[in-house]
Nucleic acid binder design. Structure first.
Length: 470
DNA sequence: TGAAATGTTGGGGCG
DNA sequence: ACGCCCCAACATTTC
């Protein structure tokens, strides 16, 4: 390898230049840097529609950020290892640097690439940065992975030592001629006929700059009340950073340190920021789970659930998907998801509980729908979250925990504003009636009757779950 | 990161 | 004046 042979930085879901150890190391070699993104549409769990829309925006933003540093993002398609190898040969690259990812398919790509590079004598270096802690860094006293969140959380806090984020490189050297690549527009990531992405575009701005703005706005504003308001879908109580985090537009270390700094500067925000960072540790927990149990997107973590009597009911599934279950808080959430590609976390739990417990439909159906419609669709968070709700997961909700969608609505959307925003058929109902309109007796044209009776559905769910124990 | 059923307590109405 | 009953309000247990 010559002193001027390029270094390829293989990008995946680390679409940033800030706090990017692989990019930083590439810059420090002083050699030309070729940033590369490979799209493999044939991959298992390839991004769904909403996620693809985000990816397009994120790649465009990254491309601009790299341009400003003097580098050109190259787009290629196909199996990742093959595409990286092809570019390495064409460009005479002497090294490939990348950020370690933890999804099974990503880990398989890494392994394949490593073997291929070694065979041709090209340097291969893997860096951290996608997580605060690599899976090997947090183990129980017995040396195994954690299966329960609280001890995992305690271990993470005790471990500490979260590295300070690195700033972006000042500049990157470029190869004499930029390698050829695909045009982003030719990937057709954004919908055209019909273009259903209007709601997404008016809600979000993908890219690292927007991510950091959102982080700062959250820390200046909502963080203080986060502990209570994060449960309120009628308020902007959450950070809404999930899609930015999913695509790696902001690193978890950047979030950790910025938030910690903000808490030190304004002690009144400490409690809220602690609760916020705890959610970041939930993300770690989910990603570690997927690393150690790569089958959780397909199979129940607790094998007892293989025998669960899930129902088949295509019509009920469609009504849930379209937000026409007759339970206002569930329908509001499902419509928010459809329109904006995002759903408030409290409502995700309610809607997921409704699908798995009230309707007794397989959590995998819900997971698949979320994968296709969420802009923040994340294999680890989604699988762990759905199994948590269904009761089959690690540290799962006990089987008898059935959310009452009426009570949840009254508790967390007390004035009914969230329901009114997303279910216009109910906009004229008073707060007292809005979470159970069928009781009010008032006509609500266009809004369906409840798909199931709460009490009966609850009892049916308890019966089904009890059957597992025998 | 629930909800519902069941149990307990204490104040007030009332014979 | 006293005891009984009713029923919130709260606590505990169970699903």
């Amino acid at each position: 390898m010559s002193a001027t042979s390029p270094v390829i930085v293989w990008y995946r879901r680390d679409l940033r230049v800030d706090d990017h150890p692989a990019l930083k190391a590439a810059a420090e070699t002083g050699r030309p840097v070729i940033p590369l993104y490979v799209r493999d549409a044939a991959r298992p769990w390839a991004p769904g529609g909403a996620s693809q829309w985000w990816l397009a925006g994120s790649l465009e933003a990254l491309s601009g950020d790299l341009d400003a540093l003097g580098a050109t993002l190259v787009l290629r398609h196909g199996a990742a290892a093959d595409a990286v190898m092809a570019l390495a040969r064409e460009s005479g690259a002497g090294a490939v640097f990348f950020t370690r990812h933890h999804e099974p398919a990503e880990a398989a790509d890494e392994a394949a690439l490593k073997t291929a590079l070694a065979a041709e004598g090209i340097e291969c270096r893997r860096f951290g940065g996608a997580l605060l802690f690599e899976p090997e860094a947090l183990t129980t006293k017995a040396g195994g992975p954690f299966k329960v969140f609280t001890p995992f959380y305690r271990a993470a806090l005790a471990k500490g030592g979260i590295k300070a984020p690195d700033p972006a490189p000042d500049r990157l050297a470029a190869p004499d001629a930029p390698p050829a690549g695909d045009r982003l527009a030719d990937w057709n990531l954004t919908p055209t006929a019909p273009d259903w992405s209007g709601g997404l575009a008016e809600t979000w701005r993908p890219g690292a700059a927007a991510a950091l703005q959102r982080l700062d706005a959250f820390l200046d504003g909502g963080a203080q009340a986060y502990k209570t308001e994060r449960d309120r879908p009628d308020m902007d109580g959450t950070s809404a950073l999930s899609p930015h985090l999913h695509f790696g537009e902001v690193s978890p270390r950047r979030i950790w340190h910025t938030a910690t700094f903000a808490a030190d500067a304004r002690p009144e925000t400490r409690g809220g920021i602690e609760a916020f960072l705890r959610e970041l540790i939930w993300r770690e927990f989910c990603h570690h789970l997927l690393h150690h149990w790569p089958a959780i997107p397909e199979r129940a973590f607790n094998p007892v659930f293989d025998a669960f009597p899930w129902r088949e009911d295509a019509e009920a599934l469609v009504r849930w998907q379209r937000g026409r279950t007759g339970y206002p808080i569930v329908d509001a959430g499902m419509r928010q998801l459809w329109h904006t590609g995002w759903m408030h976390n409290r409502v995700r739990m309610i809607a997921a509980s409704f699908l798995t417990k009230h309707l007794l439909l397989d959590w995998r159906l819900g997971q698949a729908w979320f994968c296709d419609t969420l802009v923040d669709a994340d294999l680890a968070n989604n699988a762990a979250g759905w199994q948590w709700v269904a009761g089959s997961g690690a540290d799962a909700a006990p089987y008898f925990r059935v959310f009452n969608p009426i009570l949840q609505g009254e508790k967390f959307d007390p004035a009914g504003d969230y329901v009114r925003k997303w279910v216009p058929e109910l906009a004229d109902l008073p707060a007292k009636a809005i979470h159970a309109p069928w009781r009010a007796g008032a006509a609500t044209p266009g809004y369906p009757e409840p798909l199931v009776d709460h009490k009966a559905a609850r009892e049916r769910a308890l019966l089904a779950y009890r059957s597992l124990k025998d």
